[in-house]
Nucleic acid binder design. Structure first.
Length: 547
RNA sequence: GCGCCCGUAGCUCAGCGGAUUAGAGUAUUGGCCUCCGAAGCCAAGGGUCGUGGGUUCGAAUCCCGCCGGGCGCGCCA
């Protein structure tokens, strides 16, 4: 148990004594901005004061008195408690309790920060899910970075996570792609007679056509063109994702839903639910019963189904495959599907909870280079690709950047900043802290892994204790980030940890003469390095030993 | 018009289940390498937290209106 949890318990007991009528109270401990306010601050007296209509400051005094009345042995790790301002309780903990975080990081190694889980769930994260009609764009890149990090965070919480990629391999978009490739194979270019309506214009279409012809295909065989193009573009997307360090466990084909009759089954289920009706020759679902703003068509008057049906059928398979928690990462331009998919699942009445699945919707990414927005990629024609970004800035910078903003914020990706391999770039700042530690160990000639068990007591400087507290926060940062599907919190945490370490490193020498102090400082370095490495790993960013 | 998201320092962004003096990076200015990596550190200046109300002892944070921006509002996917 860490110092913070212990303090929370002490406070709970003190509150029960000072204000017995308060009942169950939540104790929130925060790290104050100002170090003069102690190691932790608690506002429970302010919260309670409001609820019990008592003067918060007096209440705080009573709580502190209750704390002080405890015998010294029962007070651990509390060293000092005082009332401040309107009724804050500022707390200080004993140094050895702070230093325990280093020992824990060293003992747990690459598992530090991860939860040993009791309530293990099967969780699925669906992300990217791009149709194979062209290269992945920057939006997919953001989804890949977010989705992979969210999946990693959930794994770190002890869940069994499946990363899944869903794509349409047989719909109207694929047909357009096939026709575009076929046209190119016949030397028809966009704008010329015979070019398909709303065809794909990117240069890659011509590449695919050329490769298809070279593989001895006939331009007349549209089915063969379609298959070739889909396989070719899927392979390219996979190569890009691999270069980005992202892998999937399952690739789910929309066509399989039709092939296995799941779409028809879903329609039958909706009809059986009594939530459908016929109008204008089409079949409608009363999604307005589930807070949609209008009812939706299920079966068009021409007899075919709207995309909404396979979407629902697909999510039914997620439920049936045992995923009780599903996170879908998508661009915010898909937000209208959220209500619809959930409504469809509810209408089926098969026991799926109302908030299923969860969605993480991200805002758009604007790419800026040389102070101007970039909209055109050479290969894709109309949009900047993920591959462009990786080529310009490198995998680590792109992943770190794309994950360091909360999902629902607009994102301006500054290529010049990301490709800057110097002082301006936040990615290298964190990586540099890691490399620095490695370099100290290289200098010393010993092994960082052997620091476990070293006596930490010689660490007494303010900076050293503060670093210990920072390291102690890591598990909680991961827990919250996983709960809220917010990997950006990890990126911010790493920056702060790296910053504190750089400050310490500049102020103090690690390899000092005094052996006990030197070993303790090396242990500190090793613990910081471990924490940085664990955090970076979750974000899919390398933790280099040299740069 | 309706729905969702966003509006915090010149720029890019944290903070938003209220609370002690609003943070970071970058840019600007001034310092720090005979010593473990200067891809680093230290310091300074820079904000009526879009705006107007409301709730509260206390609001960047909660509620309402307005303004500005993005996205979505098909028997397209």
């Amino acid at each position: 148990m860490d110092a913070k949890t212990q303090l929370a318990q002490l406070l709970r007991a003190a509150v029960a004594q000072a204000a017995p009528q308060a009942g169950e109270t939540e104790i929130v401990l925060e790290r104050p901005r100002d170090a003069a306010h102690g190691d932790f601050a608690c506002n429970v007296a302010l919260q309670l004061g409001k609820r019990l209509r008592r003067n918060p400051r007096e209440l705080a005094v009573a709580i502190v008195a209750a704390l002080s009345s405890l015998p010294a042995s029962a007070r651990h790790p509390l060293r000092e408690a005082e009332v401040a301002g309107p009724g804050f309780i500022n707390l200080r903990v004993a140094p050895e309790a702070k230093l325990a975080a280093f020992a824990r990081a060293l003992a747990e190694g690459s598992r530090y920060g991860h939860a040993r889980n009791d309530a293990r769930e099967r969780v699925q994260v669906e992300f990217v899910s791009a149709n194979p009609t062209g290269p992945l764009h920057v939006g997919h890149g953001r989804q890949a970075a977010l989705g992979d990090a969210i999946a990693a965070l959930l794994q770190a919480q002890g869940h069994e996570v499946t990363r899944e990629f869903y794509y349409n391999d047989a719909g109207a978009q694929i047909e357009k792609l096939a026709l575009s490739v076929q046209a190119r194979a016949r030397a028809i270019r966009p704008g010329m007679p015979g070019w398909p309506e709303e065809g794909y214009h990117g240069e890659y279409v011509e590449e695919v056509a050329r490769e298809y012809l070279a593989a001895a295909g006939s331009a007349d065989d549209l089915e063969a063109v379609r298959k070739f193009a889909v396989a070719r573009l899927r392979a390219e997307q996979d190569a890009d994702l691999k270069a980005f360090g992202v892998r999937f466990d399952v690739y789910f084909l929309e066509s399989s839903l039709y092939a296995q009759g799941r779409v028809a089954q879903t329609v039958a289920g909706l009809v059986a639910s009594g939530k459908t009706y016929e109008k204008d020759g089409a079949l409608w679902l009363r999604t307005t019963d589930y807070s949609d703003d209008k009812d939706r068509v299920v079966r068009k008057s021409d007899g075919s189904f709207t995309y909404f049906v396979p979407d629902v059928a697909y999510h039914v398979t997620k439920w049936e495959r045992g995923f009780r928690r599903v996170v879908n990462v998508q661009g915010s331009d898909h937000h209208s599907t959220v209500t619809r998919v959930r409504a469809g699942l509810q209408a089926l009445g098969i026991g799926i909870p109302a908030g299923y699945p969860q969605y993480v919707l991200h805002n758009l990414v604007k790419v800026v280079r040389g102070g101007e927005e970039v909209r055109i990629s050479k290969r894709a024609g109309t949009y900047v690709t993920l591959r462009d970004l990786i080529d310009w800035a490198g995998r680590d910078a792109v992943r770190f950047f794309l994950v360091s903003r909360k999902a629902d914020a607009d994102f301006v990706f500054d290529v010049d900043l990301a490709r800057e391999k110097s002082d301006e770039n936040p990615v290298y700042y964190v990586q540099y802290a890691h490399a620095r530690v490695c370099s100290v160990f290289a200098q010393w000639g010993g092994d960082a892994a052997r620091m476990n068990g070293v006596d930490l007591a010689p660490l007494a400087l303010e900076r050293e204790l503060s670093l210990a507290q920072r390291v102690a926060e890591f598990p909680q940062v991961l827990r919250t980030a996983a709960e809220e599907s917010a990997p950006h919190a990890v990126a911010f945490y790493l920056r702060e940890l790296a910053g504190e370490f750089h400050g310490y490193y500049n102020a103090e020498r690690i390899l000092v003469e005094d052996e006990a102090l030197r070993d303790a400082r090396l242990a500190l370095c090793a613990a910081v390095r471990q924490t940085l490495a664990n955090g970076l790993a979750l974000l899919g960013v390398q933790a280099p030993e040299k740069m």
